[in-house]
Amino acid sequence: MSTTPAGADPVPETPDEPVLETTSPDDTAAARHRRRLATWAWALAAAVLVVDQLTKWWALSALTVGERIDLLGDLLGLTLVFNDGAALSIGGGGYTWALTIVVVAVVVVIVRAMRRIGSRGWALSLGLLLGGALGNLADRFFREPGFARGEVVDMIAYANFFVGNVADIAIVVAAGMIIVLSFRGIGLDGSRQGEDVR
């Protein structure tokens, strides 16, 4: 208990001042690094989306359904196909709307994950994956026969196996990169397996 000398004004007791938490320079640099990588991934996704849509516009104006232009004999060619299913035309018909929902969910997961990117490899793979997903999702939303049921425009024929597009290439490359990053033990935040990351 404090005592006040006679004749002196009492000094009001003040609560202890809160201790402000300071951000270390390392944390600030890491946050800037994550923002740069996320920005780069978004830019890559936008580039993939633009190239994908431009090539689809070209295919619609230059190619004819059912006709094939050989580029490397039977190995690689160009032909116009409208795909209402997933890769390899799986799950088409009445399930197109379900595929649209799945792709929307995938996009949401990718966008949320991009806030934690700490690795250039993951920035590249997620940028490609997001751009590819958005490229095909744009077809689902805005092409015939209707919203969320649109057919994806494909034009790159790989032998007689399947026909794809630029978005599909981005998705496949991204999937391969993610597998490699996972086998190498590189986490989304840039840490390696076994490291103690704060």
Score class of each variant (00 low, 15 high):
residue 96 T to A: 14
residue 52 D to F: 04
residue 138 A to L: 07
residue 152 V to L: 12
residue 108 V to M: 11
residue 113 A to S: 14
residue 74 D to Y: 03
residue 108 V to W: 07
residue 78 L to V: 00
residue 146 G to A: 00
residue 145 P to L: 09
residue 125 S to M: 11
residue 75 L to F: 15
residue 72 L to A: 13
residue 126 L to T: 11
residue 99 L to W: 08
residue 149 R to D: 03
residue 61 S to G: 11
residue 82 F to K: 09
residue 102 V to S: 02
residue 120 R to T: 10
residue 81 V to P: 07
residue 139 D to E: 14
residue 72 L to D: 06
residue 67 E to I: 02
residue 97 W to F: 10
residue 144 E to H: 06
residue 62 A to Y: 01
residue 114 M to N: 07
residue 56 K to L: 13
residue 61 S to V: 04
residue 74 D to G: 13
residue 97 W to Q: 02
residue 93 G to V: 06
residue 77 G to P: 12
residue 109 V to T: 10
residue 140 R to C: 00
residue 94 G to T: 08
residue 147 F to L: 15
residue 83 N to L: 05
residue 142 F to D: 00
residue 63 L to E: 03
residue 98 A to D: 00
residue 50 V to I: 15
residue 74 D to S: 14
residue 50 V to C: 04
residue 140 R to T: 05
residue 137 L to A: 06
residue 126 L to D: 05
residue 146 G to E: 00
residue 147 F to H: 10
residue 144 E to A: 15
residue 138 A to E: 10
residue 114 M to E: 03
residue 102 V to Q: 00
residue 76 L to C: 12
residue 145 P to S: 08
residue 148 A to Y: 07
residue 115 R to D: 05
residue 140 R to Q: 03
residue 112 R to N: 13
residue 110 I to F: 09
residue 116 R to D: 11
residue 65 V to T: 12
residue 146 G to Q: 00
residue 121 G to H: 06
residue 66 G to K: 04
residue 60 L to I: 06
residue 135 G to M: 04
residue 135 G to H: 01
residue 148 A to L: 15
residue 101 I to R: 02
residue 79 T to W: 03
residue 108 V to K: 03
residue 118 G to I: 02
residue 87 A to T: 07
residue 132 G to Y: 12
residue 146 G to T: 00
residue 121 G to W: 06
residue 77 G to S: 13
residue 113 A to R: 15
residue 129 L to D: 00
residue 110 I to N: 04
residue 130 L to A: 13
residue 117 I to H: 06
residue 88 L to C: 02
residue 87 A to L: 12
residue 92 G to N: 03
residue 149 R to E: 14
residue 124 L to F: 12
residue 122 W to F: 13
residue 82 F to M: 04
residue 144 E to G: 11
residue 99 L to V: 03
residue 129 L to W: 04
residue 49 L to S: 01
residue 99 L to I: 11
residue 130 L to C: 12
residue 120 R to L: 13
residue 129 L to E: 05
residue 117 I to L: 15
residue 138 A to K: 05
residue 113 A to K: 08
residue 138 A to N: 09
residue 123 A to M: 06
residue 134 L to Y: 11
residue 135 G to W: 08
residue 91 G to W: 10
residue 72 L to T: 08
residue 81 V to F: 07
residue 150 G to K: 05
residue 90 I to W: 10
residue 132 G to E: 13
residue 71 L to C: 07
residue 146 G to D: 00
residue 86 A to K: 07
residue 79 T to V: 12
residue 88 L to M: 15
residue 58 W to G: 02
residue 127 G to I: 01
residue 60 L to R: 15
residue 115 R to G: 08
residue 109 V to W: 09
residue 88 L to A: 15
residue 93 G to T: 06
residue 53 Q to V: 02
residue 84 D to N: 15
residue 98 A to L: 15
residue 148 A to H: 06
